[in-house]
């Protein structure tokens, strides 16, 4: 992976922090851009193709969550790393719901920050490569459901259209690449989150529940997204009994 090509946007209203982060990322070989408020950040992120947006939550004009949501609505799937001074778990959940990838609380350690940036970029790189493969490619069709991994658009069996978050798309991608086989929770965590065990396995369960709600005819009696108790999950495109 050639990190030199990676372009990163930093949206942070504190001049010192924005410059400090940008300088460090440049030292790592990334190309950086900075924006000092939500509006400016949103505009830059829409106009350019960044590989990552580092997004502060408390921003003038438009807060970070709103920026992320607006980007997703515009069909921009650029990964987002949220930065916030508030450390409560509620914010973490809101960040993930808004379509964020990861979440870092101020003050943070430089090496952890860089580690997370690297992890997100690596995952993104894997995803892009995987989607670009001619065989499995960028689409998934099963039991009347259709998923476009490039646009994150999904049409479910009942005709309703959904926009998947990046995490949901990644989890679905991992599962579909190992169709009919058991994928352990740790494998999913490693692929979709990228390092150690940062979210609880409960978090993965919540994503699986979301996928069931979109794609299963009866989400309470799933036939495609099966839980293998104590181990992980199994994706069966044709449908099977639990």
């Amino acid at each position: 992976m050639d990190t030199a090509a990676n372009k990163i946007l930093v949206v942070e209203d504190d001049l010192h922090l924005a410059e400090g982060m940008a300088e460090n990322m440049r030292a790592e070989g990334y190309v950086t851009d900075t924006a000092y408020d939500g509006k400016q950040g949103f505009e830059r992120a829409v106009e350019n193709d960044y590989d990552l947006v580092v997004l502060d939550v408390m921003l003038p004009h438009m807060d970070g969550f709103a920026v992320c949501r607006a980007l997703r609505e515009k069909g921009k799937n650029t990964p987002v790393l949220f930065l916030t001074a508030r450390g409560d778990p509620q914010d973490r959940v809101r960040g993930l719901e808004a379509g964020g990838d990861d979440y870092l609380t101020k003050p943070f350690h430089l090496d952890e920050f860089l580690l997370r940036v690297r992890a997100i970029l690596r995952r993104w790189e894997w995803y892009k490569r995987s989607v670009a493969q001619p065989a499995s490619g960028d689409a998934l069709r099963f039991a009347g459901n259709e998923v476009n991994f490039r646009t994150f658009q999904a049409q479910s069996w009942d005709g309703s259209v959904h926009t998947l978050t990046e995490k949901e798309a990644m989890i679905l991608k991992v599962l579909s690449e190992h169709a009919d086989a058991v994928v352990t929770r740790d494998d999913l965590l490693e692929k979709a989150w990228g390092y150690e065990v940062y979210p609880s396995t409960r978090t993965v369960d919540n994503f699986i529940l979301r996928l069931r709600k979109i794609f299963e005819r009866d989400p309470h009696n799933p036939v495609h997204f099966l839980t293998v108790r104590g181990v992980g999950y199994r994706f069966i495109p044709e449908g099977g009994a639990a």
């Binding site: 504190d14 010192h16 922090l17 400090g20 982060m21 460090n24 001074a85 101020k106 003050p107 943070f108 350690h109 430089l110």
Partner: peptide, 11 residues
């Protein structure tokens, strides 16, 4: 206080 502390730590 968290923002200036974060900035100090980063520097």
């Amino acid at each position: 206080f968290k923002t200036p502390i974060a900035s100090l730590q980063l520097s």
